[in-house]
Nucleic acid binder design. Structure first.
Length: 961
RNA sequence: GCCUUGGUGGCGGAAUUGGUAGACGCGCUGGAUUCAAAAUCCAGUGCUGGCAACAGCGUGUGGGUUCGAUUCCCACCCAAGGUACCA
């Protein structure tokens, strides 16, 4: 059946080709593209080998998640740009690595499995197949022999292996790097915790060597978890009791679950975390060493959020406890009028007085209903409650009331703040709302209306020994004083939190851990991969365990070192295995290294391959990954570097963010409470609801095909349509392309109609690569015309006709200017303007009737990265046996590029203008003299003498009166 | 709310980074070719007024700096991405 269709469609194509030739309608892109795609596949043109004799260049796209909707025209944008660079670099003589693969673990496949029972592996496999077919049609020069899939055991084996390495490591602040946990154990044996400067949990106790040795094996294991770079800890999650599962923030809408609308609450759960905070400082400073977009670096800086200030301890009245707060403004310590704790703060319950207990409990419960984002964004909404308890000011011993407020987050700093209403706007609002005192400690500043937050112009007052000091001086003095009396010290905190690594999901990498007496034990590297088990249900179990709780074979036998049935669990030799899986970002945090040696089954990548390819030279992907993937990947790369597993600290030298291609959604307007749809022009003043309609049913002039609409969705069958001028006109809006908005444009359809080369060039022509822009198929004819025109340069009618005679100087100028412009544009990633340059060149050569080999041959190589198929065909028509990919890139001859003269516009008060043609070889003085002598200058100046003439060489002549 | 980016003709966008705003393409208008259509080629096309030469206005809004601002500064409006378990 499939074969028949293929033959039929190819027969139709052949007929079309025939028609095209007869009528001269366009070049036969369909045959050409199939021919050369088959050629490249058969000759393995893009298979890359390590070659010591050539400089390497590694171009990488962020690999896609293979969704069920297939590729839409937005996906290839970055792939086309990177492919152009890859092909360009090959012409330039580099050994180019340009791989592709799939980030194939993910939530959608799992949700589809929950709904249909279809195993995610099957869905994923068929989605990948579809993606590959679509990708192949666009002529990408990927080296598919290195394909990776994160859900493939041969890949996730190494993801699990990296997890083990993290588990077996701790972070040494002395050497400022990760070290094997065995070395920490050795140190504990020698001298206990004294002398160890490690990143560890806040509540880590101090131990002597003797005390360490006295601990039981389990207690030692528990102790080490405080140091491991991946560790178990209590973390808050969105828990949905009705669904019995944890939800992503994404799946929670206004406090209830997106699916089903069930209530969601914050709840603590024991989960794996990654100690990314250990790397906070290196993640921050490392940004200065990589060529990534400045805005993206800024986002990462803000995300890491380093703050320098002080840690201050407050004694509590009638208690021997101390509350520790972090503040960036220790200079305002005398302005403190209350403390605020996060509702989740662990001491809330103990501190609260008996009479306040009920009110506090209610408030804490209410807060659990609110998401963190809501708590931060609803600034106007002030809420809080008094605990009844008082702290004592560390320097004055004055009583300071302790409040609870949900604007304080448990996860940041210590989960408690000292409130200085005169110096912090949120504290000010809180104080005003609850009638708490506001003490002014700033000299000559009015704080009756708002807080004064200007550090630069701060002069402290009412603060005993700090009076008259600036922010910097006061800060230093307070820290000194606090240190002396043991109530605080200088401190730095980061906004960056450790990354939660557990997911209560099926479709992810199993965590290679089993539990002995509740203590996690690693499965040895040699027994990996730990293969994802089969389950009958992809939902969490009835008692709230993750989906892997449904697996019947999910126990580790330490005598056989393999997975066995749960029935064998005996807690002596057979133990339960971790039921959570890894998050989506695990597999994507190191894949760029795997491409260097994708088929290696002995190691994640060989030393040779890593030493040769080192890092990605150019990485392309969306800026939406700024604070997720791109931060996690940097973290893992630093870690691997610390363990000498990779040769470089930065996995990608240069990064480009490509913008999204938006769909142009189409809307029909339904008159409310009726089945009548109004054409767009008739809606004014009526109550209408816009309804998405499929964009394929709408013409370029926004006219809706009503007959097709009625067929498309049955509920339109008996609807009424009110037309204007006999047409139904839809509304348009640019939105993210998605299946549910019916605005997806499939690249296959574009390739069918216009060819892959046109598609590639049009996507580049749409606008700057970094910018989001709407897709509009109508504009594609311009690019299509250009390629046809380019093809015709080589042809006289249907005959290939290229001459060997000397071309005119004019044509040589066109060629060399284009080489110059296009080369520059590629190097600056301004691919839209380079397409314009090709169009201009083709128009010029066409009107010069230029079909000389000396012009067309280099031009073909120049265009090859953009439109590889047509250029391969023309290259072979020009008589070459080798693929054009082996051709050397043309170099611009400056002789033809330089202008003989340049025009200098002269403006006078923005009113009078004239243009002076001057040779560029003139010096600054000569130009100035020429301007002064120019007769017209005198005339236009109306008898006034110019005060000065500003001459900027190669720019403009400026006369100031 | 906070962080980042963007806002230029009917549309996508260009502008050597402070120097003739609107390159290139789409669309539109007129013409050539054709029995006709498609395709192709030529000319025009920011808005307003004018037969025209020309004049006025014009880069989200309001201010500012400058001989000169799409570009720099301040305030605001709108849109997009992220906001820690979507990918």
């Amino acid at each position: 059946m499939k074969n028949n269709l293929a033959i039929l469609s190819s027969a139709l194509r052949a007929k079309c080709y025939f028609c095209c030739l007869i009528k001269g309608m366009g070049y036969p892109f369909y045959e050409i593209e199939r021919k050369w795609q088959a050629f490249w596949a058969q000759k393995q043109t893009f298979k890359t080998q390590e070659r010591k004799d050539k400089a390497k260049y590694y171009v990488l796209d962020m690999f896609p998640y293979p969704s069920g909707a297939g590729l839409h025209v937005g996906h290839p944008l970055g792939y086309i740009a990177s492919d152009i660079v890859a092909r360009f670099k090959r012409h330039k003589g580099f050994n180019v690595l340009h791989p592709q693969g799939y980030d194939s673990f993910g939530l959608p496949a799992e949700q589809y499995a929950i709904q249909t029972g279809q195993h995610p592996a099957i869905t994923t496999e068929s989605n990948i197949k579809r993606y590959r077919e679509q990708l192949d049609r666009m002529g990408f020069s990927f080296d598919w022999s290195r394909e990776v899939r994160t859900s493939d055991p041969s890949y996730y084996r190494w993801t699990q292996w990296i997890f083990s390495k993290l588990f077996d490591s701790w972070y040494d602040n002395e050497e400022n790097k990760a070290r094997p946990i065995s070395e920490l154990i050795e140190m504990l044996h020698q001298s206990g915790t004294s002398g160890i400067r490690a990143i560890c949990d806040e509540n880590t106790p101090e131990l002597s060597a003797a005390a360490w040795k006295a601990l039981s094996t389990d207690a030692q294991a528990a102790f080490l978890l405080h140091f491991r770079l991946t560790y178990l800890a209590e973390t808050e999650v969105n828990w949905c009791p009705a669904l019995g599962t944890v939800l992503a923030n994404d799946e929670v809408v206004q406090g209830v679950s997106e699916r089903g609308g069930h209530p969601v609450e914050r709840k603590k759960m024991k989960q794996w975390s990654m100690r990314i905070s250990a790397y906070a400082d290196r993640l921050l400073t490392g940004l200065n060493e990589i060529d990534w977009p400045e805005p993206l670096k800024e986002m990462q800086r803000n995300w890491i959020g380093k703050s320098v200030g002080a840690s201050v301890r407050f004694n509590i009245e009638h208690s021997d406890r101390q509350i520790e707060v972090f503040t960036t403004r220790p200079d305002t310590l005398f302005g403190v009028t209350f403390l605020t704790l996060a509702p989740e703060h662990e001491w809330v319950k103990d501190l609260t007085t008996a009479e306040q207990q009920a009110e506090v409990a209610t408030y804490v419960a209410q807060t659990a209903q609110r998401s963190e984002r809501d708590r931060l964004s609803e600034v106007d909404r002030m809420s809080g409650v008094f605990t009844g308890a008082y702290a004592l000011h560390p320097l004055t011993n004055e009583k300071v009331p302790i409040w609870i407020g949900d604007y304080v987050l448990a996860g940041y700093g210590t989960g408690a703040v000292m409130a200085v209403p005169c110096g912090d706007q949120r504290d000010f609002n809180f104080a005003t709302h609850f009638g708490l005192p506001i003490k002014n400690i700033f000299k000559d500043v009015d704080v009756s209306e708002a807080a004064f937050t200007d550090k630069e112009h701060t002069v402290i007052a009412n603060s005993t020994f700090l009076d008259g000091l600036s922010y910097a001086e006061a800060t230093q003095k307070v820290i000194e004083r606090l240190s002396e009396c043991g109530m605080g010290e200088g401190a730095t905190t980061y906004r960056l939190r450790d990354a939660v690594f557990s997911r209560q999901r099926y479709w992810g990498e199993p965590i290679p851990v089993y539990y002995v007496n509740d203590q996690p034990q690693l499965i040895d590297a040699e027994h990996l991969p730990l293969i994802l088990p089969e389950v009958t249900k992809y939902l969490p179990t009835k008692d709230g365990a993750p989906p892997l709780g449904n697996a019947t074979h999910w126990a580790w036998d330490t005598t056989q070192n393999k997975v066995v049935s749960n029935d064998n669990i005996n807690h002596k030799t057979v133990f339960p295995i971790e039921k959570n899986t890894m998050p989506g970002w695990a597999g994507s945090s190191w894949y760029f290294n795997r491409y260097m040696d994708a088929l290696n089954s002995d190691t994640f990548a060989s030393q040779e391959a890593l030493d040769y390819w080192k890092e990605v030279d150019l990485y392309l992907g969306g800026s939406e990954h700024a604070t997720g993937h791109l931060l996690y990947a940097r973290f893992w790369q630093y870690f691997l570097y610390d363990l000498d597993l990779v040769p470089v600290q930065h996995f990608a030298k240069k990064l480009i963010n490509q913008g999204m291609i938006l769909g142009e959604s189409a809307f029909a307007y339904r008159l409310d409470n009726s089945q009548t749809y109004l054409s767009k022009g008739l809606c004014h003043g009526k109550n209408v609801t816009p309804i998405h309609v499929d964009v394929s049913l709408v013409s370029a002039q926004n006219e809706l095909d009503i007959a097709a609409l009625k067929k498309w969705q049955p509920h339109f069958a008996d609807a009424k349509f009110e037309l204007e001028d006999g047409k139904y006109i839809v509304g348009r809006e640019a939105e993210k392309m998605s299946k549910s908005k019916y605005n997806v444009v499939n690249p296959d359809a574009i390739c069918d109609q216009y060819g892959a080369d046109t598609m590639r060039m049009y996507e580049m022509f749409l606008g700057p690569i970094e910018q989001a822009k709407p897709w509009n198929t109508a504009g594609i004819s311009g690019v299509s015309n250009f390629l046809n025109k380019f093809w015709r340069l080589f042809h006289n009618g249907d005959d290939f006709a290229v001459r060997d005679e000397q071309p005119s100087k004019e044509s040589l100028k066109t060629l060399h200017k284009t080489i110059e412009k296009v080369t520059q544009d590629i190097e600056q990633f301004s691919l839209n303007t380079s397409v314009s340059a090709f169009m201009i060149a083709t128009n010029e050569l066409s009107s010069q009737q230029c079909n000389h080999r000396e012009i067309l041959e280099p031009l073909t190589v120049l265009l090859a990265p953009f439109a590889p198929h047509i250029c391969e065909e023309l290259w072979s028509l020009l008589g070459h046996n080798e693929s054009i990919t082996t051709a050397a890139y043309p170099v611009a001859n400056p002789k033809y590029v330089q202008d003989d003269s340049k025009e200098y516009p002269i403006s006078f008060n923005g009113k009078l203008r004239f243009t002076l043609a001057l040779s560029t070889s003139l010096s600054k003085d000569e130009i100035e003299a020429a301007v002064m002598q120019e007769e017209r200058t005198q005339t236009y100046l109306d008898g006034k003498t110019p005060k000065k003439v500003i001459v900027v060489p190669n720019k403009i002549v400026n006369i100031v009166v």
